[in-house]
Simulated scan of single mutants.
Amino acid sequence: MITEKLLSFARETLNIEIIEAQRMHDRLDNSIVTACQLLLACKGKVIVAGMGKSGHIGKKIAASLTSTGTPAFFLHPSEALHGDFGVIETRDVIMLISYSGKTRELDVLLPLLEESQIPIIALTGNLSSSLARAATCVLNVHVEREACPMGVAPTSSAVNTLMMGDALTMALMRHRGFSLEQFARSHPGGYLGAKLLNRVHHVMRRGNQIPRITDQETVMDAIFELSRTGLGLTIICESENQIAGVFTDRDLRRWLLNGRKLSAPITAVMTNPCHLFSSDWCIASALEIMHKQRITTAPVVDPKGKLVGVINTHDLYQAEISYRGILPSTMNETS
């Protein structure tokens, strides 16, 4: 009985919030276009402010904007009234969040902002409020019903405000053509940053760890090199470390099954052309190609085409880089 009752309460909450979100979706108009244009034209900072629950949502909106190409920060209205208003400049745009539009701290700030002719984007549910009247642009987050049964806790209105912030953020991001790699650069300590910012030269094997022989050596020499490194591949080099081809475990099996001599020149059995990776490719792109081509090891070359290392999928996985569809095709650096 208790379980069913609690489940019913939770479902009712979600249903109310979904209905109110749909209402906001249906009345969305060019006001969000105006808001986007104000932010795109901003030469200074984007400042987000709000009190209480609106402030918590404002922090999230500011963080989302910042991580998707629109630098923003949250300013607490009370702190602004006690000295922090000095960070606001005439070239800035400020986003004020108040569902009632009658927050005392914001009411004190409004004349100062108007005097400085600073554009105001208001997120409010009260279009006749002092905030709405003072705003350059109003984003309407009105709800007919809060999910709170007493109608006092910000629920539906909080969801609408958050969704409006997301709509604004995503519209700006897509208009700017903000890329996955740019997103990763704003998250360098995260998993996505590791996948997209790390380069092949960060994890490739170098020096004596590279399995290689010259193009003057034999199949037997290549077998010794295969055994020494255990990477399943030997790189055959011409003069000045230019790559002539590769010799793999598969090449060896095919050669032996055909009854060929191990004293034969390696150039008679090597694979050419072969897959090469540039040292400055991002690891995720390299791993995507290796996955699609079903290869586990490949030579790495510098901009002049000279051998500088070897990359192995095991090393990539050790570096906590995994494929599993992390990149859209637009991130493939070989296309």
Results as ranks from 00 to 15, higher is better:
S128P: 05
V300A: 00
L307E: 04
M290H: 04
V141T: 10
L123K: 02
R145E: 11
I321F: 02
G232E: 07
E115T: 13
S263P: 08
S130D: 11
V310P: 04
Y323E: 15
R212F: 13
T155P: 03
E320P: 02
S78L: 13
M170H: 05
A72F: 08
I121R: 01
L231Y: 08
I236V: 13
T70H: 01
T234E: 03
E333Q: 15
V46D: 01
H201D: 13
R27W: 11
S157G: 06
R253W: 00
T124G: 04
S278Y: 13
E144K: 12
I210C: 02
R104F: 14
A194I: 05
T3G: 10
K53Q: 07
Q318I: 10
Y317K: 14
G165S: 00
R254V: 04
V87S: 09
A72Y: 00
E238W: 10
P71D: 09
A171P: 04
T169I: 05
L123R: 08
A49V: 10
C36F: 01
G207L: 11
G325Q: 12
A21G: 04
V300F: 00
F74R: 10
Q37M: 10
N258G: 15
Q37P: 07
H175W: 14
E17M: 09
M150T: 14
F183I: 04
S179P: 00
K60L: 09
V152I: 13
A158L: 00
N272G: 07
L316W: 07
N160V: 03
F74S: 06
L96Q: 07
E181Q: 12
T334G: 15
L131R: 02
T297S: 13
L252P: 04
R174I: 03
T34G: 12
R324A: 15
A284I: 05
I97F: 00
L39G: 09
A184N: 01
G69T: 01
G55A: 08
A134H: 09
S179K: 07
I289A: 14
A135Y: 06
N160D: 07
R27P: 07
N126W: 07
R199W: 00
I223K: 08
D107M: 14
S156N: 08
G305M: 09
L40Q: 14
S98H: 03
D249I: 01
G193N: 09
I19D: 14
G83Y: 10
